[in-house]
Nucleic acid binder design. Structure first.
Length: 478
RNA sequence: GGCGACGUAGCCAAGUGGUAAGGCAGAGGUCUGCAAAACCUUCAUCGCGGGUUCGAUUCCCGCCGUCGCCUCCA
């Protein structure tokens, strides 16, 4: 058995690329910070999960047994600072007039549907916060028992002074400094301004509350991730991912409470995805550029074009989402599909595995293993794409094998593109046939009109070949 | 104010101390009734100014610009 390819990844804690050494040989256990399911996920959220998906697929591609856990946060958390404000689930509930759990269920279903359209694999475990409250309470109690947490008038807080280096594992700037220039409302109940809530005492009107040794209330924002990740992956596990926004405070809090509780290292590799921006600004409802996957579809793009766009930029560089960039990704995807379909037809579906050190294959693998360099991997795949158009059958068969193999990571449904029986609707067929008749009759004016109509209104691109007209489905008006 | 990231061709985007992958668009050509597709050819000295070096886009310093974090957020 050949030695497993060494994967190197950027670890936010080390602030450097490090070779991956698993806790359990041959395994990769990863936790992705999941969504708070109070509102529709936008493409920025989805982008982060595409990245997590590529990470998971890369480990599987290189032969690791992966356990991927993603939480579903169906407990509301404070909207603004500290203890003031309304929680998000309550906000959603009030806005829609539905109860929190119903919203959570609906939003989760929508989220999963979006993920499936983007070929994001389902995590092996998707724990819900509401189903793990007792576990969180247990963890909080442990922290109290160990002297890391204390009971205050409005809840239980983690005492950051008991955890040396709090807030500096993933961040260069110590919490004290960052607080200096920022406005922070002082909560008189806390012993230290940086102490964070583990448990919040129920307030009148709270829709979600649980009994606890400290009275009715609900869990703090950070504790669920510690409780659930350690339950499903062990006290120390390999990879924890999330958006760059979680560098502080969320992940710092997770580290503090987890390690304080277990006395063991919590996570070996921290992976943070840079935000997707829209027209060069962070996506936020308040700024207007707030898009969902449905918007992308309505504009005529294939959801997988968005996946391809995401793959086209390194995850540690912010991806600027623009219509122009989507156009480019869409065209790129269409070309991939066309080439693969033609190669498949030309080889009669035969594929041949090339040697492991076959240049293109190696280039692709090296790129992926190098901190998931998907833009470079795409370039390697595009070389395979060129080979797939070769006149040499042996080369084509190997290229096709490679493309299908690469697609285990890329997730662009290339096999479907090659094999899927797409048929024209009766209307499309009628136009297509009519154009053929007009063309044979040398009525080029009419035939060109119909060709334009098929493209503009139906997204059918017609191409004439020696063997007659062929068609393919593309974005409308492309 | 503090901390951090980024600035590569029209656009998206890799990358390296020794004169810069790939994609999209564009230009020319072959093909075509015309197109499309395909194929061939073509298209950048890497924000600005210093410094280190035989040599910097790649290292250091300064500047300018953009973005993010410091508050819920992928």
């Amino acid at each position: 058995m050949a030695t497993r390819t060494e994967i190197r990844l950027f670890d936010s804690a080390a602030r450097a690329v490090r070779p991956f050494v698993p806790v359990h040989a041959g395994e990769a256990r990863m936790y992705n910070c999941g969504p708070t399911v109070y509102d529709r996920q936008h493409i920025g959220n989805l982008y982060a999960y595409i990245v997590a998906d590529v990470v998971r697929r890369t480990f599987e591609y290189f032969g690791y047994r992966v356990t991927q856990v993603m939480n579903i946060t169906d407990v509301g958390h404070i909207v603004d600072d500290a203890d003031a404000g309304e929680d998000k689930m309550a906000l959603g509930a009030r806005r829609t007039g539905k109860d929190p759990l119903r919203i959570a269920t609906e939003v989760t279903q929508q989220f999963m549907a979006d993920r499936h359209k983007l070929n994001i694999l389902d995590p092996h475990v998707m724990p819900k916060a509401t189903e793990h409250v007792p576990l969180m309470i247990e963890l909080i109690q442990k922290l109290i028992d160990k002297g890391h947490a204390y009971l205050a008038a409005d809840g239980v807080y983690f005492d950051v002074t008991t955890f040396p280096g709090y807030g500096t594992r993933l961040n260069a700037e110590p919490p004290e400094e960052r607080m200096a220039g920022a406005r922070v409302e002082v909560n008189e109940n806390k012993r230290h301004p940086n102490d964070f809530a583990l448990w919040r005492a129920a307030k009148p009107g709270d829709l979600q509350q649980w009994d606890s040794p400290w009275g009715k209330g609900n869990p703090g924002w950070h504790i669920e991730c510690s409780a659930m990740s350690m339950k499903y992956l062990g006290d120390t596990f390999d990879i924890h991912s999330g958006g760059e926004d979680h560098l502080f405070p969320h992940h710092e809090c997770e580290i503090a409470q987890s390690e304080a509780a277990t006395g063991k290292p919590f996570v070996n590799y921290w992976l943070h995805v840079r935000f997707l921006r829209v027209d060069n600004e962070k996506m936020a409802k308040s700024k207007g550029g707030f898009f969902t996957l449905d918007d992308i579809s309505e504009w005529g793009y294939d959801p997988l074009a968005f996946r391809l766009l995401a793959l086209g930029t390194g995850y540690r560089k912010s991806l600027d989402f623009t219509r122009a960039a989507m156009d480019q990704a869409q065209r790129r995807l269409e070309r991939w599909r066309r080439v693969v379909a033609e190669a498949y037809a030309a080889t009669g579906g035969r594929v041949t595995e090339p040697e492991p050190d076959y240049g293109v294959r190696k280039g692709f693998n090296d790129a992926l293993a190098d901190d998931f360099n998907t833009p470079k991997a795409l370039a390697a795949a595009e070389m395979a794409l060129n080979l797939a158009g070769s006149d040499d059958a042996a080369i084509r068969e190997r290229a096709l094998w490679l493309l299908f193999d690469m697609d285990r990571v890329l997730g662009l449904s290339l096999r479907d593109a090659a094999t899927k029986e797409d048929v024209l609707s009766s209307e499309e067929r009628r136009l297509f046939d009519e154009r053929e008749r007009a063309r044979r009759a040398k009525d080029f004016t009419r035939s060109d009109e119909l060709r334009d109509e098929l493209l503009e209104r139906h997204g059918i691109r017609v191409m004439d070949t020696k063997d007659g007209a062929r068609w393919e489905r593309v974005a409308k008006g492309a």
